[in-house]
């Protein structure tokens, strides 16, 4: 790198650092989500929470939500026909910790053709209350089939139940074929 490039890179690193600080991000990752990654991130977050004497209930909720979010990416991030496509099973994964809550955010590329179905599933979950979610979970467990990749269609319902909040999701259009799907789950530190 010449001098100008070095300076640009250093500024990028420092800006990135500041940006993480500003958003209280404790963990960020971009890449393929494997089982090993899932284990590493959950155990890292677990030991951090234990060190900070987070309550057992909060620790368990964060653990549950992290596992389901990571598995969503590994099972659903799109591959567009070609198996070695850049985005298959990949995405961004972030955990942030504020004074009152944790946020677990995932982002991954999906085909536009799948947006309608995904929105329908998420919106359906979002109108249900505690009892409704419980019934839906039971029905899905009984009647749902495990997909080839081991998805049971239960992850989103579980996240809604564990957090007690609506699933906060957005689609950011990339091009005619694809969009970026972002889901943020919030776990209160005080409940």
């Amino acid at each position: 790198m010449d001098k100008k490039n070095v300076r640009g890179f250093l500024e990028f690193v420092y800006d990135f650092y500041k940006s993480m600080k500003a958003h209280e991000i404790t963990l960020v990752y971009e890449g393929e989500i494997t089982h090993q990654i899932t284990k590493a991130f959950t155990s890292l977050t677990e030991s951090n929470m234990a060190k900070e004497e987070e309550s057992n209930t909060v620790q368990k909720k964060v653990f549950h939500v992290m596992v389901e979010c990571l598995q969503n990416i590994s099972k659903h991030a799109d591959s567009f026909g070609s198996d070695d496509f850049l985005f298959a099973g990949r995405g961004i994964f972030m955990v942030s910790k504020g004074d009152v809550e944790y946020h677990v955010t995932t982002g991954n590329v999906i085909e536009n053709a799948k947006i309608e179905e995904l929105s329908r599933i998420l919106d359906h979950i979002n109108v249900l209350d505690k009892e409704g979610l419980k019934q839906l979970y039971k029905t899905q467990m009984r009647e749902g089939r495990l997909s080839e990749k081991g998805g049971a269609g239960l992850g989103f319902i579980d996240i809604a139940r564990k957090t007690g909040r609506r699933l906060d999701y957005h689609f950011l259009s990339i091009d005619e074929e694809t969009s970026f799907f972002i889901l943020t789950s919030t776990i209160s530190r005080t409940e």
Partner: peptide, 12 residues
């Protein structure tokens, strides 16, 4: 002490 949603289906 813990099981994920995919396991919940197999436990059933």
């Amino acid at each position: 002490v813990y099981f994920n949603t995919a396991s919940s289906k197999l436990l059933l």
